[in-house]
Design a protein around this nucleic acid. Structure first.
Lengths: 211, 211
DNA sequence: CCTGACTTTGAATCGCCAGTCAACTCCAAG
DNA sequence: CTTGGAGTTGACTGGCGATTCAAAGTCAGG
């Protein structure tokens, strides 16, 4: 019920959310106008407010739902893999801004930073953010636990703790990478993440690409 | 010359920059109005634009100059200490949002996130940011080099590389902490940072507070 | 072919705020 | 005392953009 598809088969609600996420990525939250979103959907500005109570609500929903989709994609992939090491590698790959062209990445990280800024003053968004972040750390911790149960990884520090540490490092590095720091390429971020993960979790890295 | 003090001894330029930084911290970059800044200075809105070409320039300058001051404070403190371990600990203390009340911290990190967001679309600010960040990693790397030269720290991975890794982790954790994540206190961040630093650099942590 | 609910439009309204400006204060120098 | 320039004020302008709204359009069911 609730939000059914239109006659022509489009789900306007979702369509607008996606357009909004794209516009935010392009222009930044602060410079996103309703008419930009409308334009991207090929509809009139009025329609946007027909589907969303206000610009504010729309933007917040767009930010979180984009993140949701990233998470869904991630966990779908994780489920398909047996090896914890492969899972970890894939998680890192997906986390490096601009590493994989395949998914026409709309740079989730840019949205993520916008969430941070806004969550500082928006109670509701702050809670959502915390939820999303918990899930993110959890994914990492789960991989570690999985690896330990299969013997791929040695026992060691608390997995949740490691999830926190690695998650934070990935966050920090992703920001650098997103900023296009000249001292820093996506490839480099990938290597650093794998390397530090190896040292903190306690497994050996294959030398180079495929040793 | 250039920017001399006023008759009454005030340096309006600096005064406005500081007020701006404060307002940005309170209200967020997006909701900062010229009149807010004026109000905080106790002057009329017109005066703000008498001293700064435009709101935009003022805001950018406020963001970077606040960060500058953090750096100056940091390096001043570092110079006073001999022990690399003490330096590292102090650097981390200063980096944890809300750990030290002493410096009426205006939460540099909140400003830092605003810089990230804006640097994504502002070429000039992007360059400044990179400069500031380089300095930040450098500070960490310098401490490590210092510690190795005195024998406090063992030789190991490239110091600049470690600076990058630790810097990123501190960034990531600082964001979590700033967000007031319930799973996360300033104290906890401090411990995690010290712990991971120990493991990555290769020194032993004193057990607990003062072992 | 009607009817009415759901969609869509685009023009009109409305408040807000950056930036402008003419006038005023204050002071130092002559 | 002047005078001139820096500093300061606060009212005013202009444009922008969120939101509203009345008028159309579309379509399913009767």
């Amino acid at each position: 019920m609730a939000r059914a598809r239109q006659k022509n088969g489009k789900d306007r609600h979702a369509e607008i959310l996606e357009a909004a996420a794209r516009v935010i990525t392009d222009r930044g939250l602060a410079d996103t106008r309703i008419s930009d979103i409308a334009e991207r959907c090929g509809v009139s500005p009025g329609l946007i407010l027909y589907y969303f109570e206000s610009k504010d609500r729309l933007l917040v929903e767009a930010l979180t739902s984009a993140n949701d989709q990233f998470y869904l994609r991630l966990s779908r992939e994780m489920r398909r893999m047996d090896s914890a090491r492969d899972q970890l590698q894939r998680l890192i790959e997906l986390s490096v801004p601009g590493l994989l062209p395949e998914y026409e990445r709309l740079d989730e990280w840019a949205l993520w930073i916008e969430i941070w800024v806004r969550a500082l003053r928006d109670q509701k968004l702050a809670q959502e953010r915390e939820q999303l972040d918990r899930r993110w750390r959890q994914s990492i911790a789960d991989i570690i636990r999985h690896g330990r149960s299969t013997g791929e990884f040695p026992e060691g520090e608390d997995a949740d703790q490691l999830g926190l540490e690695l998650g934070a490092m990935i966050d920090g590095l992703a920001v650098q990478t997103l900023m296009n720091d000249t001292a820093f390429s996506p490839q480099r971020m990938f290597e650093v993440c794998m390397d530090v993960s190896g040292r903190l979790i306690g497994f050996q890295l294959e030398p180079s690409t495929a040793g």
